[in-house]
Design a protein around this nucleic acid. Sequence first.
DNA 1: TTTGTTTTGTTAAACGATTAAGCAGTCTGT
DNA 2: ACAGACTGCTTAATCGTTTAACAAAACAAA
Lengths: 344, 344
Amino acid sequence: MDKKVSLKDIANHLGVSTALVSYALNHRDKEARVGADMAEKIRKAAAELNYQPNVIAKSLKSGKTNTIGLIVADISNPFFSNIARIIEDEARKHGYIVIFGSSDESAEKSKLLIDVLLNRQVDAFIIAPSEHTEKQIRNLQKRKVPVVLIDRYFPNIETDFIQTNNFQAAYQAVDHLIKNRREKIGMVAYDTGLLHMRERIEGYKEALKDNGIRFKSDWLRKVSYQHFTRDVELGIKSLIEPTLRVDGFFFATNTIAVESLKIINQSGFKVPDDLAIVSFDESIAFDFFYSPLTYIRQSVEEIGKEAVKLALSRIADKTKKPTSVVIDASLVVRSSSKGAGKKK
Amino acid sequence: MDKKVSLKDIANHLGVSTALVSYALNHRDKEARVGADMAEKIRKAAAELNYQPNVIAKSLKSGKTNTIGLIVADISNPFFSNIARIIEDEARKHGYIVIFGSSDESAEKSKLLIDVLLNRQVDAFIIAPSEHTEKQIRNLQKRKVPVVLIDRYFPNIETDFIQTNNFQAAYQAVDHLIKNRREKIGMVAYDTGLLHMRERIEGYKEALKDNGIRFKSDWLRKVSYQHFTRDVELGIKSLIEPTLRVDGFFFATNTIAVESLKIINQSGFKVPDDLAIVSFDESIAFDFFYSPLTYIRQSVEEIGKEAVKLALSRIADKTKKPTSVVIDASLVVRSSSKGAGKKK
DNA sequence: TTTGTTTTGTTAAACGATTAAGCAGTCTGT
DNA sequence: ACAGACTGCTTAATCGTTTAACAAAACAAA
C-alpha cells in the first residue's frame, strides 16, 4: 500500500494488457468491445488496489492539463482573493484546478508568471492584466492559448473579457453625491493607463458635467502604486485644504479608500457632514468606519463564474469570436454619503 | 512561431539526436561530454526557436512536479490569503508553483481536495487541517507524501508543522485585559476540537486562574461554523445581559471578532469603557472600529516562509524527523482594551 | 600495427497513460 | 461450408523528456 499503483500494475495483476485496463477504467466498454465480466474484474481490481490515475501522464498524452492559470495583481487583496475563491469552486466543478500568481501590477512579473504557467501547459489563463502587458496577451493569443481578462481589459485587443461597467458605476456614484448636495467632489484614482481606471474617471467627469458642475483638474488626484501611502496622504490633504476644500470624495478602489479614510480620520473633518464619501469596491473596513461607507458593489460572484465559463468555452472552441461581458454594478447607499446642508 | 517547439524539433533542425540536445540544454556538457561548439550551437538554436521545455513531460520522467498543494479553510479569508501570498512568493523563489484549494472546514471536502492534488502528483502539501482529518494526514504520511501543517496540528501525529504559540498568545491577551481592570471576561471561540482553538481557550482560562479569577463556564461561548451569525449574536447578547454582564471580551479569531463587533455596535455598550476587547488575528476592520482593537498579531510572514522551508526540506529528505516550529505572537495594544474604572 | 583511451555522439528504454490497428476465435446466414 | 461480421483482447506507437549504455572515430601509447 505504498508506491502508487499504475495501469500496468493492474494489468500484470490480472494478466491482461494495459490497453484493456485503460478501456475498462474509462468505461469505454462498448466502443472498445471489452468483455462485460472482464470489465467488471478490472474495475474491481482497480478499486481494491486503490488505483489513482496519474494525471501527469494523462496530460502528456492528451495535451490537456485541466488546469487554469490565474494571474491577479495580488492574491492577498480581498477583491482578488474573493474572485479566486469563486474561480476555484467553479473550476473544480468542471474538473479543473487553479494555479495562481500575483503580478504586483508589474509587467515584468506578469511576463515571468505567464512563462512559468505556459511551461506548465495550463489550458487557459484568467488574468487581471497589469499596465503594459498588451504584448503578453497578444502573444498568448497568437499561440492560441485561451485567455480571459477580468477586471481590466485592453480596448485594442480582441479578447474574451468580463468587467464591471466602470463608467456607469462611477457615474452613478458621483451623481449620487451631487444629488446629496455635494458640489466640489474630489476623486482619488490610481495613476495608470489601464482602461478600467480611465473609465471610472470618465464616469466621474461625466456625472459632474451632466449636473452642470465644471470639473477642476485639481480635484482629480492620481496616486502611484510605488508611493501609495505618500501619494494618498498628499492628495487627501491638499483636497481638504481651504483653497480647494472639497465636500465629497469618490475613491476609485477599496485600497485607496482605506488609506484615505485614515488621513480623513486624522483631519478632524466629519463624514458625512463635512465630507461625503463613496468608494468603489467593498471592504470590511467600510462597515466599521464610524459612518459606514456608501460603495459600489461589483459582483465578484458573477465575475468569477463568468470568467471560468468563458475560459472553458474558449478551451472548447479556440476559434470562436471573443465574448465580452459587462456587468452593472450596484450602489450600496449608507450613511457616508448622506445629504448635507439644509435639505435633510 | 505557432506550435510549441520540442527537443525533437531542435534535434531535427540541427541534425543531431534529442539526447544531445537534452544534455546541452541542461548544461550537462561535462558529464555527458558534449562538444563545446556543438553545445553552443544547440543552445543558440534553442534560443532562436524560443524553445520552452515541456514541464509535464519532465515531471512524468522525474516524478517531480515542482508543485506544492495548499489547502486552507477558505482562500478568501484574509488570514489565509495573506499566507497564500507569502507561500506563493517563497515557493516560486525555489521554482515551485502553488495549487490551492479551500476545504471550508469540512473533512469531506478536504479529502476530495487531497485526492485531486495527489493525482496531480504535487510534491508536497501545506495544509491548515480541518477537524477530523487526522486519518487523511496519516494516509499521506503512510504514502510518504511530504505534509506540512500550518495554523493547526494534531498532537498525536508526528508531522512537520508550524504554528503560533496559541496558549501564550491567549494568555497574554487575557492577562492584559485583567491588568486593565477587567474581571469578567467573556470569550467567543469556534466550536471545534482542533487543538489550536483548545489552546487559545486554555490560555484564556489559565490567565484567569493566575490572576485569581474563577472561570465561569457561561463566559465561554462556542459558535459553530454552520450557524455562525446566529451563534455569535446569541453568544454576545447573552454575555452582555445583566445576569452575566461581562466587562471584557476575548475573541478567538478575526471572523468572530468582526461578527461580534456588529452586535456590540447595536448593543449600545461602549468600547472600551463598558467593554474591553482583544481579538486574535488582524483585520482591516479593527483599524476602523471607533475604538481600534487590541489584537494578537500572528506573523503570517513567518508562517508562510517557514511552511515552504519545511516542505522543501522534507521533499529533500523524506525520512528526516519531523520539525515543529512554534512562533510567539505579539500583542498589539490599542484603545479597545484601555483600562476602565478608577485607574487610568 | 595493435591496443587502449578520449572524445563526441547515437540508440533505445523509460515515465504512465491512450488509442489506432491487428489478430484470433466464434457466430450468422445462405 | 464459407464469407463476412462480430467479440474480446493484444501490439505497438505516441506524448516530450531523461539517461544508461553503446558506438565510432581520433589520437596516443606500446
